[in-house]
């Protein structure tokens, strides 16, 4: 019988925790409904814990970045900032949830540029997430893409790949990702015949390239760097304006004559209509986090380049990226969705 009691206790503790969660969630809504007419306008913010949602499962780079930021910002603001993973639909689930959350600064998220600037090109209008539906608080960091090949091919540059004169099979990390867009644009600009082979995320894509199942793959620098250093992958190009400092010997696509530079970047967002005073406090906390040695080290370890710019600049950049991506795809007659 002792065992039963233990189980019951576990269940009741868990139940109490769930109840507490539910209650705090209700509390959030209540605060919100009164929040609009709140005279303080967020000057006493924050008075309770802030929930940071991540549209990816635990362990990925989005999750790690959110956790690093929540740790620093929570300390700076003096409240807990729990990270809640809600993976699904490339982060669109979190976007929808955040959009309808109360704009009181107690629901925030770090979101990906690809969801705003690339995914809309691959999914239906109703699913596309729009920049104007959120308040963008501040930029966080940038993650660059690298085009790599298996050493067996013997290629060292995009030109080598073109000289091979065959239809290139390239792996991507999925439909509507920066990896796919970068590759598709490169092949179109270079006039190389190519077929995309989409994989479900970074790991299977990497495996396929290591096993030479595909000729080349585009992936984020952090995903490829260990294998590049070990000589198991040969980088052909990075897709950024300047060389990536973690791979200083790898020329950019632009240096090789192909102006393709799509990168992934992340930024802090809140629901539309969050009071300015609240956003200012979040910015201040983010800046304090950026300045810590611990956070700088985190960026280094994860091959992330800081992109610590104001939210308005991020919004402008996102819109410009979406426009240029749309225009380029049109120019070359590429469709991300139909897998051409």
């Amino acid at each position: 019988m002792t065992n039963v009691r233990t189980r019951t206790r576990i269940a009741s503790v868990a139940g109490a925790a769930a109840l507490a969660l539910a209650l705090s969630a209700c509390g959030g809504v209540k605060t919100a409904s009164g929040g609009g007419g709140d005279a303080s306008g967020g000057s006493d913010y924050p008075t309770k814990s802030i929930e940071m949602t991540v549209g990816a499962s635990a362990g990925g780079s989005s999750d790690l970045i959110s956790r690093a930021m929540s740790k620093g910002m929570g300390q700076s603001l003096g409240v807990a900032m729990p990270v809640v993973n809600k993976p699904g639909a490339n982060g669109a689930l979190v976007a929808k949830a955040l959009q309808s959350a109360a704009p009181d600064g107690y629901s925030i998220a770090i979101q990906n540029a690809s969801l705003f600037a690339i995914t809309p090109l691959a999914v239906s209008e109703s699913e596309a997430v729009k920049v104007d539906d959120f308040d963008i608080v501040y930029g966080v960091s940038r993650d660059d893409y690298v085009l790599a090949t298996n050493p067996k091919t013997g290629w060292k540059s995009i030109a080598d790949m073109k000289a091979a004169g065959k239809t290139i099979r390239y792996g991507t990390t999925g439909v509507g990702t920066g990896a796919q867009l970068n590759s598709a644009l490169t092949f179109a600009t270079a006039g190389i015949k190519a077929t995309a082979v989409p994989f479900d995320g970074g790991a299977p894509n990497l495996t396929a390239l290591l096993g030479a199942q595909v000729d080349v793959s585009t992936m984020q620098v952090g995903e490829a760097i260990e294998n590049i250093r070990a000589g198991k992958l040969v980088p052909l190009a990075v897709f950024s304006a300047d060389r990536v400092k973690f791979l200083p010997d790898v020329p950019t696509a632009k240096e090789q004559g192909f102006d393709v530079q799509v990168s992934q970047y992340r930024f802090i967002t809140t629901p539309k209509g969050t009071p300015q005073a609240v956003k200012d406090k979040l910015v201040e906390a983010a800046k304090k986090t950026f300045a810590t040695e611990e956070y700088k080290k985190f960026n280094e370890q994860n091959n992330l380049t800081p992109l610590e710019i104001p939210g308005s600049e991020v919004a402008t950049k996102l819109k410009a990226d979406l426009e240029s991506n749309t225009a380029k795809l049109k120019e070359f007659g590429i469709s991300l969705a139909s897998n051409s």
């Binding site: 699904g88 639909a89 669109a92 689930l93 929808k96 691959a122 999914v123 239906s124 109703s126 699913e127 999925g174 439909v175 509507g176 989409p198 479900d200 991300l336 969705a337 139909s338 897998n339």
Partner: peptide, 18 residues
Amino acid sequence: RDSFTGAERFTFGNLNLA
């Protein structure tokens, strides 16, 4: 969501099923 074309299959417009 069809991971090759991005087309929705049996999701009935529900993002949770994407």
